[in-house]
């Protein structure tokens, strides 16, 4: 009888310990997981200038009427639409050009050109506009005071000011009213090891492949090879900003 009682007590103790352990792991695990994610994403290793992210846009493949890249960017980064097109933020847009002499028409996407010498970063009074070592031009939203001088200075009209409250924000794109922002080459993806941007992915999915993205410093990357083999140019090359985005056939 005593043995039986002991057995029951042991069983109860074991079950209690089991539950306690389960509860403990349930409590601690998310923290551990989050911490490990944070360790990966916090960029503690830092980015280096061994990489320079860049893009080649083959305008001959960019389809007239297609705006897959624009839509993908808006949904990836949670760009709000208040139905006020003059003040709603736009990170990438489609532009259609006609040559004044020949009437030939070109369509292309325009976004932050990720200059090596970005005028936006030059003029920013607080240094909120900056260029990362890996070539991405970004805004530090903790110190942006919303003066919009960078928007005056950007030769590509690539920047948007947040004109009103944003209710829903994706966790990877923190942002708020009163600051300036622009395309950041989907930096959250790059920092977690994914080497595509939302616009490139969307363009590929549509079967156009007009956007090639990658590391300009890696001579074997697709973008480097394409740039080597195809004639391309910078927009406003006269400013000698050495842009990270190049265009073919304009």
């Amino acid at each position: 009888m005593a043995d039986k009682n002991n057995l029951l007590a042991n069983k109860a103790r074991r079950s209690f310990l089991g539950k306690a352990a389960a509860a403990a792991s349930l409590t601690v695990a998310p923290g551990v997981v989050l911490q490990s994610i944070a360790a990966v994403k916090s960029g503690t290793e830092g980015v280096s200038d061994n990489t320079r992210w860049g893009m080649l846009i083959d305008t001959s493949k960019c389809a007239d009427g297609c705006d897959a890249c624009v839509t993908a960017c808006a949904s990836e980064n949670g760009l709000p639409v208040h139905e006020r097109p003059k003040s709603d933020p736009v990170w990438i847009r489609k532009v259609k050009l006609k040559d004044n002499l020949t009437d030939s028409v070109t369509t292309l996407p325009m976004m932050c050109q990720h200059c090596e010498k970005p005028p936006c970063a030059d003029v920013c009074p607080t240094g909120a506009s900056f260029r990362r070592a890996d070539g991405i031009v970004m805004v530090d939203r903790h110190i942006c005071i919303g003066c919009r001088y960078c928007m005056m200075a950007c030769p590509y009209k690539a920047r948007s000011f947040i004109h009103e409250e944003i209710v829903l924000k994706p966790t990877h794109t923190p942002r708020g009213k009163g600051c300036v922002e622009s395309c950041n080459f989907c930096v959250h993806r790059l920092d977690s090891g994914n080497e595509t941007t939302a616009c490139q992915e969307a363009c590929q999915k549509e079967g156009h492949n007009a956007i090639i993205f990658g590391d300009l410093k890696d001579s074997s990357s697709e973008v480097s090879q394409a740039l080597r083999n195809l004639p391309s140019r910078e927009i406003r090359a006269d400013l000698q900003l050495n842009t990270g985005v190049r265009y073919k056939d304009i």
Partner: peptide
């Protein structure tokens, strides 16, 4: 060139 359409 002349810009004939633009999203911005």
């Amino acid at each position: 060139k002349t810009i004939i359409e633009s999203g911005f």
